[in-house]
């Protein structure tokens, strides 16, 4: 079993590496196709033409495109992402710093979602019909209909009008809640359905007949059965956290990868754009790998199928 899991993980790793490399190259090409380049803002701000010529020379902008692409690909293969023209820093360091921020945000959001969503889901699934579970279900259906953009604006509004939550720059709570609550609601609904299905299964009936107390039935027996369908969506959830984080980072000024990407695109900083896509690809791949590994540990069918 260990061997099969390792082979599965290795195969996924190679595939992910290929995806990340090719997609960063594509981003480089596309960003070069965009109007303007690293010196456009300098030209508009009337910087000394001599300095601009120096910058163009340093960045190799006057060389033919195939040469630039070859240089980029060669650097990429050596995992050298180059220099950011806008920030005058190595892209790798910049991207690692911002990527870590986004990863931290996504991780806390996922943690919040899990801690809120799963227990509530067990409650609504096992004790449906009570007023508590009706209330929770209604709330989670409502939260489910909030895209991260809506969630973050609502939370910011609550924060500004009531001062219950701090919105000081660098505060993690609002962005993490905005990103995590909709996911938590989705997890709650899923866990609820899974628990409900598990409670109706025959082995739970058998366990109940053996005289196992009901709280143990719900929190141990049913919970274990519901693990598989719920863990299955974690890979998908990680992806949605990533796409949702752009709106959240933008609205709360969270210094993450999404914001860096927007800046890079705006300034035509091609190396940085490619670096951001590279980092996003790596983060997504790692997230998917972790989720997949979890799944193949819980569910042997995943290993055998692939």
């Amino acid at each position: 079993m260990i061997h099969a899991t390792a082979a599965h993980v290795l195969r996924r790793f190679v595939a992910a590496l290929l995806v990340v490399l090719s997609v960063s190259t594509a981003a480089f090409v596309l960003a070069r196709l965009a109007p303007g380049d690293e010196t456009t803002t300098d030209v508009m701000e009337g910087v000394d033409p001599k300095a601009i010529a120096d910058t163009r020379d340093r960045l190799g902008l006057d060389r033919p495109f195939p040469v630039q692409l070859a240089q980029f690909t060669w650097d990429l293969l050596r995992l050298d992402l180059g220099e950011s023209a806008k920030f005058d820093r190595p892209v790798a360091a910049l991207v690692a710093e911002r990527g870590a921020n986004t990863a931290r945000l996504a991780f806390v959001a996922l943690l919040l979602a899990t801690l809120i969503g799963l227990p509530l889901g067990v409650v609504t699934g096992a004790y449906s019909g009570t007023w508590v579970s009706r209330l929770v279900s209604t709330a989670s259906i409502a939260v489910l209909a909030c895209p991260p953009l809506v969630a973050v604006l609502v939370l910011l509004y609550i924060a500004t009008t009531t001062a219950w939550i701090s919105v000081a720059p660098g505060d993690l709570l609002v962005p993490a809640l905005a990103l995590g609550l909709p996911v938590g609601a989705a997890l709650e609904r899923l866990q609820s359905q899974a628990t409900h299905d598990a409670m109706a299964s025959l082995d739970l009936l058998a366990a109940a007949a053996r005289g196992i107390p009901s709280h143990r039935l719900v929190w141990v027996h049913a919970a274990r059965q519901s693990l598989r369908p719920v863990l299955g969506v974690y890979g998908i959830v990680i992806g949605s956290l990533f796409s949702g984080s752009i709106a959240v980072e933008f609205a709360t000024s969270w210094p993450g990868l999404g914001r860096l990407m927007l800046d890079a695109v705006q300034y035509g900083d091609v190396r940085l754009v490619a670096g951001c896509v590279f980092a996003a690809g790596v983060c997504l791949a790692v997230g998917n790998l972790v989720a997949d590994t979890l799944r193949s540990v819980v569910d042997p069918r995943v290993r055998d199928l692939s």
């Binding site: 997609v23 960003a31 965009a34 951001c276 896509v277």
Partner: peptide, 16 residues
């Protein structure tokens, strides 16, 4: 498995 949002932004940026 692509980081789609990032790619959509890059693609959008190829236009002014």
């Amino acid at each position: 498995v692509l980081p789609i949002v990032y790619l959509v932004i890059v693609l959008r940026a190829t236009r002014p």
